[in-house]
C-alpha cells in the first residue's frame, strides 16, 4: 500500500514537472501582456483577438497550412504505407529485410538529415520549393511509421481467411476490400494518427523544404517569431486550445477503447 502510494506520487511529480511549461502557457493566455511571463491582470483579450481574422491573418494562414499539409501527408502516407505493407508482408526473407532497412532509414536519420537530403534533392532537380515540396517531405518521413503500424496487424492475421475468400470465388480485389482491409484497419488508423502528429509537430524537415516564397507553417512561424525576440501573444491561446482539444479527444478515445476491451 505504501509502495503504491509512493509510486503514484512519483508519477504525479513527474507529470507535474512535464506539464508545468504547458500550464504556464495556459495561465498566461489569460492576460494581455506581450511577453510570456508578465502578468497584467486577467483578460480574455488574446482569445478574442485570435479569432478576429484581420488582426492575425498570417498566424491563421500558418495554422491552416499546418493542418492541410498534415491531412494531405497523413492520408497519402497511410495509403502508400498500407499498400506497401501488404506487399512487404508477402516478400521473401531477403527482400523483406532489404525493404525494412530502407523503411527504417527516415526513422533513424533524424529530422535534420532528412531535411537536408530532401533539400539537396529538390535543389538538384531544380524544383522550386513550396507547399508541394513540404507535403512530399512529410510523406517521406511519415510513411515508414504507417508501414510499421500496419505490418504487425498483417502478422497477426490468419492467412487462411484470405485464401478462403479466393477459394469461395472472390476476386483478389474483393478479398482485399472485404478481408484484408478490415483486419488491418486499426493499424491504418494508428498509422494515420501518428503521421498526423508527426507532421503537425515537425519543424526541421519543414524548414529545409519550405523555400523562401513566404509560405509558413506554425513551426516556422513560431521559429521566425522567436528569433525576432518575442512570441506573438496570440500563440498562447492558440496552443492552449490545441492542447485542450487534443486532451479531450484522447480522453474520449481512451474511454471508448477501455469500454470495448471490457466487452
Amino acid at each position: 500500500m505504501v509502495k503504491r502510494l509512493f509510486a503514484q506520487a512519483y508519477l504525479w511529480v513527474l507529470l507535474l514537472l512535464l506539464y508545468s511549461p504547458i500550464l504556464i502557457i495556459i495561465i498566461y493566455s489569460f492576460t494581455e501582456a506581450k511577453v510570456l511571463g508578465n502578468w497584467s491582470g486577467f483578460s480574455t483579450h488574446l482569445y478574442t483577438s485570435l479569432f478576429k481574422n484581420s488582426v492575425h491573418h498570417s498566424l491563421m494562414n500558418a495554422l491552416i497550412n499546418t493542418v492541410t499539409i498534415a491531412l494531405i501527408a497523413a492520408t497519402v502516407s497511410t495509403l502508400l504505407g498500407s499498400i506497401a505493407a501488404i506487399g512487404i508482408f508477402n516478400l521473401k526473407a531477403r527482400a523483406y529485410k532489404a525493404i525494412s532497412f530502407v523503411n527504417s532509414i527516415p526513422i533513424l536519420n533524424g529530422d535534420i538529415i532528412t531535411g537536408i537530403s530532401l533539400f539537396l534533392l529538390f535543389v538538384s532537380l531544380g524544383v522550386s520549393q513550396g507547399y508541394v515540396t513540404v507535403v512530399l517531405a512529410h510523406i517521406t518521413f511519415c510513411t515508414p511509421y504507417v508501414v510499421l503500424s500496419v505490418l504487425p496487424r498483417l502478422k497477426q492475421m490468419n492467412p487462411n481467411i484470405y485464401e478462403a475468400a479466393l477459394d469461395l470465388g472472390a476476386t483478389p480485389l474483393q478479398a482485399l476490400r472485404k478481408v484484408i482491409v478490415p483486419e488491418i484497419l486499426p493499424g491504418m488508423i494508428s498509422g494515420f494518427m501518428l503521421a498526423l502528429t508527426l507532421s503537425i509537430d515537425d519543424f526541421a524537415v519543414t524548414v529545409f523544404t519550405i523555400g523562401n516564397e513566404g509560405l509558413e507553417t506554425l513551426s516556422t512561424y513560431i521559429y521566425a517569431d522567436a528569433r525576432k525576440g518575442g512570441l506573438t501573444p496570440e500563440l498562447r491561446p492558440l496552443s492552449s486550445i490545441i492542447f485542450v482539444v487534443v486532451l479531450a479527444l484522447l480522453m474520449v478515445i481512451n474511454y471508448r477503447a477501455g469500454r470495448t476491451k471490457k466487452k
Binding site: L14, Y19, I22, I24, T197, D201, S219, I222, L250
Partner: peptide
Amino acid sequence: FILPMWVNILVRTLATVA
C-alpha cells in the same frame, strides 16, 4: 505522459524558458 508532445515543440521550449 505522451500528451505534451502535442504542443508544438518550439512553443513548449519557449514556455520552459519562461
